[in-house]
Nucleic acid binder design. Structure first.
Lengths: 108, 108
DNA sequence: TCATCATATCATTAAAGGATGATATGTTAG
DNA sequence: CTAACATATCATCCTTTAATGATATGATGA
């Protein structure tokens, strides 16, 4: 099954990691450096279980990495390339800010 | 309402344009240059109404632009910056291809 | 004006997706 | 060993999302 998945769908799947507000807020909280789960929970204002759930997926997708230090687990952005994508996202948003604000779809 | 939407949600909203397979295939079909709707329909293999619906949203969000030539409407990627984001997406995907393939979420 | 071409819009439906809250699991100090 | 800390997992539910197919709208040539 998965062997036959087209690159396009893989790519869309990748962008999904950025397209959900909770996930994006997690990634944003990690831009300045690694954080433990508890800190991500505080930074994002989401429930611990929700954050854990999303982190699990982001990690499995390869967008973040983790390391354990005793009871604590630290997460960080997986690569410079992911950071670069986030930076580009900022630039695009700057361009289309007014348009996207007025679009009625995806009213978060 | 919309005035109060946080930048994070705006950004997630922007990434949404890339995270849906149909939308992404539309954007991908435009990377080499502008196309009329009919051609996008062929390139993506989606129904005309579905393509139109997504194009409408992509346009309103500012990710694509359009011009009319008689009966035909041509769409193109809105800016170099959007192209750049697509390029970065390719690079990230290259890095995480094996991981994301194995992730069970978003089985397109 | 009307038929044809090209595209946009709309109502409906089925499926996907995300959050919650309880609970399970892993680590560690006393 | 046990309690406390930190995090992961799970079942459920509600909301959102995308596709379909019919139809509306716009442009044009005869």
């Amino acid at each position: 099954m998965l062997e036959q998945i087209a690159p396009l769908e893989l790519k869309a799947k990748m962008y999904r990691g950025f397209a959900d507000p909770t996930r994006l807020s997690i990634l944003e909280s990690l831009r300045d450096g690694e954080r433990m789960v508890g800190a991500i929970v505080e930074a994002t204002g989401q429930s611990q279980s929700n954050v854990s759930n999303h982190l699990s997926c982001l990690k499995e997708c390869g967008l973040v990495t983790s390391r354990r230090d005793g009871k604590k687990i630290f997460y960080s952005i997986a690569s410079h390339q992911v950071q670069s994508l986030l930076n580009d996202g900022d630039l695009v948003l700057r361009e289309i800010r007014d348009c996207i604000r007025s679009c009625a779809k995806y009213d978060y």
